[in-house]
């Protein structure tokens, strides 16, 4: 039982990372009806940006450590958001009139450009990088169940992000416009909503959330590598599909399920740890077969 609870905790951590990435996928799909496949790469780019910023800031001697960390996180998140909106300009805007699959192709290609770009242009980017930030090592144990400070912090941070996101979407004017666009693009356009602006803001938003996911990932697993975005992208996309593409809350549930499935596979299936992704994909395929619209997704009837 103790083991199960410990595994649930580790699975939850992984699940939160997946969920944060998957929410980005869902947010973008909801508004634009496209899959931005390079999203996970943008997320991990966030981690690399924060590393670069941190190296730069720690050269300025008179900054206290807490300020360095604060500035690092804030600027990395903002820069990644900007990169997200640039991605929209390069890879999505020219294809807005083309079939959605063209955007999938162009963003898959972009993902490769980001990954290989990091590998080639980041100093010795081919090898895994030790992430410079980490949470304090506090922990308390109760009957064998260990809860660490980092676990609690990650849950709190994820909670805050989703709280802010829901306020932004539901309470602000731009949020209203985003919701309107996601319901019906033409009608939104008729009502005078500036689509270019909405698309840019959505990309900014999704990428900032992604940057947080990338940084949390670096903090929790101590390591970032240029090619993490590939698997992260496929699993994040899967989680979003499981939850129902376009539904952010569904993406959270999908991410958590996949995280826990992976961690349980590693612990309880004999010799199962190399196959953990396979078990995750089997769950996804089962969902596609029996509930193609996802956990919280609505059934879409295509109209001409």
């Amino acid at each position: 039982m103790v083991l199960v609870i410990n595994q649930v905790i580790t699975g939850l951590m992984l699940g939160i990372m997946y969920a944060l990435i998957a929410s980005g996928f869902s947010l973008l799909f909801g508004v634009l009806n496209v899959v931005q496949f390079a999203h996970a790469d943008v997320c991990f780019l966030g981690a690399f940006v924060s590393m670069a910023v941190m190296t730069f800031l720690s050269k300025i001697e008179f900054f206290p450590t807490w300020l360095v960390i604060f500035l690092t996180v804030v600027s990395a998140v903002l820069i990644t958001g900007l990169i997200g909106s640039i991605v929209e300009k390069i890879c999505v805007k020219p294809f807005r009139k083309s079939p959605g699959l063209i955007i999938l192709l162009s963003t898959v290609a972009l993902g490769f450009i980001i990954r290989e770009g990091i590998k080639i242009f980041y100093p010795s980017g081919a090898s895994p990088k030790l992430f410079p930030l980490s949470f304090p090592q506090w922990a308390f144990s109760m009957g064998g169940v260990t809860v660490r400070f980092s676990n609690i912090m990650i849950i709190i941070i994820a909670g805050i992000i989703y709280f802010l996101l829901s306020i932004f979407i539901n309470k602000t004017k731009i949020g209203l416009q985003i919701r309107a666009t996601s319901q019906n693009v033409e009608a939104a356009q008729v009502l005078g909503i500036d689509l270019d602006k909405i698309f840019m803001i959505t990309f900014f938003l999704a990428s900032t959330i992604g940057a947080v996911a990338g940084i949390l990932n670096g903090i929790y697993y101590n390591i970032v590598k240029f090619d993490m975005g590939l698997m992260g992208g496929i699993i994040g996309f899967s989680a979003a599909v499981m939850g129902g593409l376009g539904n952010v809350y569904g993406a959270i549930i999908g991410g958590l399920i996949l995280g826990i499935v992976e961690s349980f596979t590693m612990a309880f299936v004999p010799g199962g740890s190399p196959y953990k992704e396979i078990f995750a994909f089997i769950v996804v395929v089962l969902f596609l077969l029996f509930k193609p619209s996802g956990i919280l997704g609505k059934k879409v009837i295509e109209k001409v």
Binding site: L3, N6, Q7, T10, G11, L14, Y221, I223, K225, D227, M231, S263, F264, M266, A267, G271, S273, P274
Partner: peptide
């Protein structure tokens, strides 16, 4: 326990081994 190259989370296995 076999792990695939690129694994970054060993906690599930370590939890088990600890026991």
């Amino acid at each position: 326990d076999g792990i695939s190259v690129g694994t970054k989370d060993f906690r599930p296995i370590l939890n088990k081994i600890k026991g």
